[in-house]
Structure formats: C-alpha cells, structure tokens
Design a protein around this nucleic acid. Sequence first.
DNA 1: TTTT
DNA 2: TTTT
Lengths: 142, 142, 142, 142
Amino acid sequence: MNKVFLIGRLARDPELRFTAGTGIAVATFTLAVDRNYVGQSGQREADFIPIICWRKLAEVVANNLSKGRMVAVSGSIQTSSYQAQDGSKRYRTDVVADEVKFLDWPNKDGGSGFRGGISHDDVNVSDDTGFFPVDGDDDIPF
Amino acid sequence: MNKVFLIGRLARDPELRFTAGTGIAVATFTLAVDRNYVGQSGQREADFIPIICWRKLAEVVANNLSKGRMVAVSGSIQTSSYQAQDGSKRYRTDVVADEVKFLDWPNKDGGSGFRGGISHDDVNVSDDTGFFPVDGDDDIPF
Amino acid sequence: MNKVFLIGRLARDPELRFTAGTGIAVATFTLAVDRNYVGQSGQREADFIPIICWRKLAEVVANNLSKGRMVAVSGSIQTSSYQAQDGSKRYRTDVVADEVKFLDWPNKDGGSGFRGGISHDDVNVSDDTGFFPVDGDDDIPF
Amino acid sequence: MNKVFLIGRLARDPELRFTAGTGIAVATFTLAVDRNYVGQSGQREADFIPIICWRKLAEVVANNLSKGRMVAVSGSIQTSSYQAQDGSKRYRTDVVADEVKFLDWPNKDGGSGFRGGISHDDVNVSDDTGFFPVDGDDDIPF
DNA sequence: TTTT
DNA sequence: TTTT
C-alpha cells in the first residue's frame, strides 16, 4: 500500500513532455503544500513536492493548470535513482498522481493561464491506465 | 493537507540520533514498499522511502524494529534542502511518521532483532507531539 | 489504522450541540461527496456522509461553515449502535473529523452564512484534543 | 475525493453473493478496527465497519479470508438508502474496497479457513473494474 | 432530509 | 450479530 493525499498550489506551470520511445505524455509540476505551523521567521512554511502525471491526466493538467492554482492530488510515492553529471548516484522522490481535482477558479480578469471551458466543479481527472510500463525506451524524460 | 499511508518492510535497521541543541530523539529508516506491478526483469519492484520519527515514537521504533519487519506508517511528506559537499544545493524528500503500526512478528527462533516484550497486536505508536519545532539549535542531524 | 480523506460540500448547515454532562461542543453536518461516475438518470451522484467535529473544531466549523461550502475533511470512521424508538438496535457510521480545511469562498454578495473574517487560505482547523473521552455523562447528543 | 484506508481483522467470514440481473460477484464482511484508546470498561474498543468488494476482488476475498484474519483495505465510503420492513427509509454507510492486502498468516495448525496457496506477502488484490454500474437489475443484494 |  |  502506498497512498498519498495532498492539497496545495502549483509552485510553477506544469511542463509537458513525451517519452522518447513511445511518445507517452508526462506532465510534471511542483506542488506547494502549506505546513500547519509557522516557522522561525514567523512565515508560513510549505513543502515543495514534485508531482508526475501520465497520459490523459498529463494532458488535462498541462492544458488547464498553471502556477498558483489550487488542486487536490491523490497518488503514490515513487523513488528512483539516476546518474548525476559527476557520475555519482542520486536519488529522487516523486508523487505519481492518479487523480487531480481542481479546487479553485482563477480570476476571470487575471489571465492566469486557464485555457479550458470546463467548470472547476466538474474537474476530477484520473489516470486509470495505472502505472507506467517501464520498457527501456520509455525512460522518464528528466 | 498532506497525508501519507504506507505498508512495507524496513530495508535496514533504524538509526537513532539526537538533535545537537536540545537532545530530541530522531529515528530514521528506509521503508521498502512493494509496487503492484512486476518490472522488466520479471522481478517485483519496490519504492525505498526514507522515514523520520521524532521523540517517543523514535525511541519505540529504534528499540523494537529491525530490518525486514513489516509496518504501516501514516504521516506526511516533508521536503528540505541542504548544501552538498561540493557546495551545490540538494533537495530531499522524507516521510515524517506520526503513527507506526507493527504488523508482523519475527520468528521466535530467528533472532531478528526484536527487543521488546510488546505483543504486536497492541503496538500502534503515535507522535502526538506534532511537528518538530525548528529553533536553530535543532537541525536535523543528517 | 483508520484514516479518511474527503472533499465535498456541506449538504446542510452544521448543527452545534453540547454534551449533557460536561458541556463539550460537538458539531455535525452532512458532506455531499461527488462520485466519479454519472448514474442511470444521467445525473451526477453523491455520497452523503455524516461528519462529527468535537471541541474547538466544532465551534470553528459551526461558526464559519454553511450549506454549500466546500471543505476537505480528514478523520476516521466511527461506528456506534443505539436503541431505536421501537426498541430495536440500530447502527450508525460517522466520520469523526480531526482536520477541516475550508476550500472556497462564498459569494461576497450572496449572504451564504460565512461569519468570520478569516482568509480561506489560512483556515485549516484541527482537533488536537484527540478522541472524545466517553464517560457515561457525555453521550453523543443524537 | 473519497479515500479510506483501514487496517483491522475480519469480525466474521465474508459472504459471497451475486447480483440478480447480471450475476456480478459481491462479497461483504465486517472489519473490526481497533481504536487507539481504551474505553470505560478498561477494554480495547473497535469500530465495526461494513466492507463491500466487487467482481474478482470479491472472489479472492471470499475464497481466501475468514474471521480473524488481518487485512489492510483501501477504498471509499458509499452511502445508500433503502426501505425498511416497516416501510420507513433507512440509511447505510459502507466502505467499497478497491484494494485488499492480506497481512497475516493463519495458524498452520488451526484450520482457520485459509484455502489458498498464496503467500501472504504477495497478496494485494485490487478491483480495477472501478465502480459498479448500477442499472436497475443489479441492485446490491442486501 | 441533501451539496455545486 | 462482532476481530486479536
């Protein structure tokens, strides 16, 4: 069992890429999740959590979300390792989303990047295709 | 909101340390959480998730768990950054546990490292002291 | 382990009561949680989940939420039994909240019942007093 | 969003039925989930939560679990209403499972009802067929 | 008895 | 109607 539930705001616009081998869509963004306490500086603190979405979910996210938007994400934690520039092994931890629910509505006037005509009350996108079938050609492009 | 629920096995024995300033106990271990699919190699794959426990929970975990034990962990994702040896900024992601439930019982004969006399059915430890009050002297010792 | 995570809208205004014995505040409301599918009628369907909040959380909820407001609730499932009018035993299932996050902002003009001056981005109330100490005088008043 | 995560023991053997219309398998059982506190009587208390499994998951559960077995369940809360004998409207709340993980191993000698040859470390069954398509003929048979 |  |  590996379950994660988060509510936060996009710390940056999503990036959409495609796997080299099979052209599967993958979107990535960072979610800023407020902590329940206030830090030393008297400032609200947040965790900045890297999120990965696959396939249709990736496309809906990339086409409809932008920096500052509030979402709920359910998914799981995924760890991976990779070779750094200097040859050393590095580890990374991401949340792979299987559901993203849009929770706010950008300022009508603000041009905040929302590009869809979908009512935010209806948007609860899920990735029913499950996990990404790693097959050598389809390394995650980051 | 930032909620995590995991079930897996300790990939290594827990390490117990104390913060420099105030001597608060902190235990760390890695949890191996099986994925629901089988990888290329035909082998079961797992995510290796770093877990942090504080205070009393840290002590109970360090004194009663060891490599191979199965537990359920609830908690939250915490991200932090630190200076690497070479001066570059690195990021890490951990799960801070607020509850750990012991799910199995080591072989009576096996010497698996269990050092307590607590029935596994009763062990559900929680950290009700909440988040760690960062106050300059109490940097996380890793 | 008993963990619940819900996002939905209040199907009715919260009710605030106090336990007979010790006067502890308890608020109840029903949360309408949309299902991810559309029913036979072609209509969106929802689950109507009874929520219970205790103490300070009860008061914040009763004073600041009203029918239609969107919230995220984390908590646990609690079952109980009671004597029906006709003497038969009945069972009920509720979610006891330990955190409620306010997710929307009522129409400034609409008089939706919001009575606080708190920015919705800051409102994430938790019940750190833990479970309700059942002691005979303090039966749940419903 | 509607997510539930439970760990507990079956309070009774699962019951397997089939929908009248389309013969879809549905298993039901009650999960006893220990509370973290001890009640007035000085006894450990539990919540008794009704669980519903559909299709393949229903069959695996019915064929492999029995009273007393420990499992982790992830799923969602579902509410429904029905006509009681006396004509009055009643409400019920169930957890619809989408994943069940077997967490213990019955006494080899005890004849506890385990009928499979599956290692408990491998058993993590999920219902990927999603929600049950209510279509008039397929009312839940209880 | 149900929300948008 | 409840489990260890």
